[in-house]
Computed example of a mutant assay.
Amino acid sequence: MRLDIVSLFPDICRGALAESIIGRAQRAGLVEIRHIDLRDYANDRHRTVDDSPFGGGAGMVLRPEPLFACIESLLQDDSHVVLMTPQGSVFNQGKARELAKKTHLIIVCGHYEGIDERVRQTLIDEEISLGDFVLTNGAIAATVVADAVLRLLPGVLGKDESSQDESFGADGLLEYPQYTRPAVFREMAVPEVLLNGNHAEIARWRQQQRLLRTARRRPELLEGEG
């Protein structure tokens, strides 16, 4: 996959995505990430990309000229353009899996009071939000979406089954409790079933725990299961 992130603050995304698993994936050639500075597409010497809104109001709006110039220069036949905005559909694991199937993803980061509506109407394929709250800029949200999507690409996690057994995997349940050494810590013992080496019993216990944990913490995820 090739991922282009269009932002006023490319270093926000660049720094986070250069580390850990996603950083290794880039160095291994599993994904190509390009951090695009929208100001590079401004048409004046001050690199102006925003202006006050028609009709008045607080804040500034990203102008259409640099956004059109930038996005159109990146578009390919297989491009899918996402706008990060509080007005978008709420992001979840299902959407991450859907976006992970794209070959070229362009994420446009909103900022200030948003973008000129003509950009949204013409160039944006879908709008995504992290939830019902507002961040200082869309680059933070884009970094979260990028990480969630890229970790699902083949080879990125090392073992592809790692993304199947975790929370919100194929069945949508939360993950089972995890334990590691020591087997007893401050008089708290690891469940015996995890120590007996019986893989069938371990699998049954884990599935039971997933159902219990989901029912207690996120019961809405079980709707439609029965």
Rank of each mutant, 00 (worst) to 15 (best):
L67A: 08
A200M: 04
L174I: 00
Q76S: 15
A16H: 14
E117A: 13
D132W: 09
A183V: 11
Q178N: 09
C13V: 02
I106H: 04
R151E: 04
A142T: 08
E72I: 08
R24I: 10
A183L: 12
H104R: 05
A215D: 01
L194E: 04
Y112C: 08
D147R: 15
A146V: 02
K159W: 06
D116L: 00
G29A: 06
T143N: 08
V81D: 02
T143A: 13
Q209M: 03
Y112D: 01
H35I: 05
R27H: 07
D171T: 05
L211R: 00
T136G: 15
L62R: 04
V145H: 10
V108W: 08
P182W: 12
N196I: 14
P191H: 05
A215R: 11
E223S: 13
G114K: 11
V144Q: 07
R186I: 08
A203L: 13
M84S: 09
G114Q: 11
V90T: 15
G88F: 00
N196T: 13
R34L: 05
A42Q: 04
G224L: 06
A170C: 12
E201S: 15
Q93C: 10
T103I: 11
I36D: 00
F133E: 05
Q209V: 04
I5T: 05
G224F: 04
R2A: 01
G94I: 11
S20R: 13
Q208F: 04
P86N: 03
A58P: 15
I71W: 03
Y112E: 03
K95S: 14
P66D: 02
N198Q: 03
A58F: 09
F133D: 04
D147L: 13
L62D: 04
T214A: 00
D40Y: 14
I140Y: 12
A170L: 13
Y176L: 01
